[in-house]
């Protein structure tokens, strides 16, 4: 898998982590859903890379917008929203998660041609 694609997948995971972990915590079922969807969509990416992306997310001070801006192509934007929506909803979508998810969706609508 190309390094560029790996970076994009990693960024998608970090957006999903931002949305699920709005309070700094990602639940077991949310985490499992992230692993499941990424593995199903990109079987070559691997668990260790997902793990690495999550560790990087927790060690970083970057905001959701900082990640969103790095995903430019439509396919990965769509994947980001699906990954975020399904993982955050895995244990019920709370208000904070919903707001963060809406934020991501609006960001991509407003920057549709980027």
């Amino acid at each position: 898998m190309e390094l560029e694609v790996q970076d994009k997948i990693s960024t998608c995971i970090k957006v999903a982590a931002c949305i699920c972990g709005k309070d700094g915590l990602i639940s077991e079922v949310e985490e499992a859903t992230i692993f499941k969807i990424v593995n199903e969509t990109f079987p070559d990416f691997g668990d260790s890379k997902i793990e690495e992306a999550l560790v990087e997310f927790f060690n970083s001070k970057m905001q959701i917008e900082d990640y969103l801006v790095h995903i430019n192509d439509e396919i990965f934007r769509e994947f980001t929203i699906i990954l975020s929506k399904r993982s955050a909803s895995a244990d019920g979508l709370n208000i904070d998660e919903n707001i963060a998810l809406q934020k991501a969706m609006i960001f991509y609508t407003e920057n549709a041609n980027d």
């Binding site: 972990g21 700094g24 915590l25 990602i26 639940s27 077991e28 985490e31 999550l54 927790f58 060690n59």
Partner: peptide, 11 residues
């Protein structure tokens, strides 16, 4: 029970 992921590992 629950396993929560956070900075530095799992709670």
């Amino acid at each position: 029970s629950e396993r929560l992921r956070c900075k530095g590992g799992h709670i």
